[in-house]
């Protein structure tokens, strides 16, 4: 048997310290983290990490920030399972185990010089934010930028101060909707596809990046098709159960692909025929 033995266990996490916590909604918090070794995480927008809370377990969490100069990175986390509930109980100075970054990234290079249509549904904005912010920081590298964001109701909107900035920016079009309005909501009401008629795109030069709950994809894809955006210019980020992050444990498998390695960011033209992808 010929193989190279890796230097150590890929299951050993690095330590990261929580430097800031921001409450985003009733069930979501933003954690700013720094690796204890002082090194940058070394991620690209769209990748994820396996987060450990010792004694509780590990969970795959997408990275919500673009690479930042001060070596911090952000995870926005909904408390929904064992690990994320435990994370929500931690305070500033608390330590988390980090493995990764893992997986594929959003098409930061391929989209250069092209128009970008971002489509975020609910906490799909969490991973997509890493790419949106990356594009805004390197604004001149990209063409027209459109951000569509849909939430179930106004209280579930994330990153409120950033949304406020986006609303005011002249160099992007930001459109938002909620499925159900409250008395203060003055904007669009309806699912995210109701924003598409308001958007003009040049399909040949548009890269479309979609992240949202599983049910959202097929309806958004119908809209992108209607706009004539070619399948190979559409990118999705898929959620799956993951344990190892190394393409071994089998949980994230969709037909021939392992989402932890071949994804989470996948080109629609590569997966539309996969039976269990969407």
């Amino acid at each position: 048997m010929n193989h190279s033995m890796p230097d150590g266990s890929p299951y050993v996490p690095k330590w990261a310290e929580i430097s800031r916590i921001e409450k985003l909604t009733e069930s979501e918090k933003l954690f700013e983290l720094r690796l204890s070794n002082g090194q940058p995480l070394g991620h690209k927008p769209g990748q994820f990490v396996e987060v450990s809370v010792l004694g509780i377990g590990e969970a795959p969490i997408s990275i919500s920030s673009p690479p930042i100069n001060d070596n911090s990175f952000e995870l926005a986390v909904r408390k929904v399972g064992n690990v994320t509930n435990a994370m929500h109980n931690l305070g500033v100075g608390g330590k988390l185990g980090i493995r990764g970054p893992f997986g594929t990234n959003f098409p930061i290079d391929e989209a250069k010089g092209k128009d970008i249509l971002f489509v975020a549904g609910g906490i799909g904005l969490v991973p997509l934010r890493s790419f949106i912010k990356f594009v805004l920081e390197n604004r001149k590298d990209y063409g027209e930028v459109t951000v569509l964001f849909g939430a179930r109701n106004p209280s579930e909107q994330l990153f409120l101060s950033e949304l406020e900035q986006w609303r005011g920016r002249k160099d992007i079009s930001y459109l938002e909707t909620v499925d159900r309005a409250d008395e203060n909501w003055k904007g669009n009401v309806g699912v995210i596809t109701t924003l598409f008629p308001k958007v003009q795109v040049d399909p040949a030069k548009t890269i479309c990046v979609v992240v949202g709950p599983p049910v959202m994809y097929r309806f958004v894809i119908m809209e992108t098709k209607a706009k004539g955006i070619p399948d190979k210019q559409i990118f999705l980020s898929l959620e799956r159960r993951m344990k190892c992050g190394l393409g071994k444990c089998g949980h994230c498998q969709i037909n021939n692909i392992y989402v932890c390695q071949d994804g989470p960011v996948l080109r629609y033209s590569d997966i539309f025929a996969l039976e269990e992808a969407l």
Partner: peptide, 24 residues
């Protein structure tokens, strides 16, 4: 079949434990 789950076990003292994988 080699799929596995990864799991944490904590000792009764609640300060030590093991992470292990098991057949899934």
């Amino acid at each position: 079949c080699y799929c596995f789950d990864v799991w944490d076990d904590v000792e009764l003292d609640l300060t030590h434990g093991q992470r292990y994988r098991r057949w899934d």
